[in-house]
Amino acid sequence: MGDWEWPLILFTVLGQIAIGIIVMLWWLDRDRDHLDTQLFKQGVYVSGGLLILALLASLFHLGHPEVAYRALAHLGSSWLSREILLFLLTFLAWINLFWLSRRQTSSHPIGADAATITTAEIAAEGQQSGNRSLGLGITSVLGLLGIASSAMIYVLPRVPAWNNVGPVLFFLLTTGLLGALVTLVLGRKLLHPTQKKLLLQCSLGCTIASLLFYVIYASMLSASMEGATSLNFLLSSPLFWARALLGWFAPLLLLVSMLKNSQVAKTNLILTLTLFSVLGEVLGRALFYLSATGIQITALF
């Protein structure tokens, strides 16, 4: 069985929230001018902060963090090298977003006199909006590739529980789920009700997909002895049931009730839902490392 890999838990979950926020901002920005400038700025600052924390946390996993730069040396076959490169490129792309957010002027207030807006101002805004969308798109793509690389590190023939599509799928679903919810928290006063509804629907889709794929994944585990050991560990661990309650069942109930009763604007519900989901995903990631059982020598010592 594995260990409590706190640096890796923090790196993966915080990194996935950071990139999830950028992906959601990009999604909301797909129709020009529909992304509030204030939300864009908040999203960029929070995602940057989380990305820096994630990268710092990852260093604590290393025996010698002072030479962490060497991890870029084996791009040919090591997914860890590729992950580091892609996360560094994502960070560079984020710096561009930060620079754009500093230059971004507020959009015209609703009800502004159309006659007072000059053609030059409209052109400048269009240019800003185009740059913003491009910046968000590039950061999102690099970030998602980074997350896929993170997951591929664990696709090891030695560990049957990881040697499948599971890690990639679950890492991307965490990105979608927590990215949507944290964006919802940031934009609870700035998003239109339709945008809030979209983010809630995205969260619901990710939660349902996560639960369904987990059931399929768990049924696949029993195919090998080591996989069955991982499954037994999971099912007998109170942490797993806490993860199921906090990360799947409670969010599902809240999401369905919020969407059904059109309670998309209730801040307390949004905060509770986000807290549950974050805790559920952190526990899920801890279990990912704890339950890993590798093929090994079974002869006596």
Binding site: G63, H64, P65, R70, A71, L156, P157, Q296
Partner: peptide, 19 residues
């Protein structure tokens, strides 16, 4: 060259690289 990431210890089915 080793930075102590321990990935090799996870990958080897014989547990021979050791920290």
């Amino acid at each position: 060259r080793c930075i102590g990431c321990r990935l090799c210890t996870m990958a080897c089915p014989y547990d021979r690289p050791q920290i």
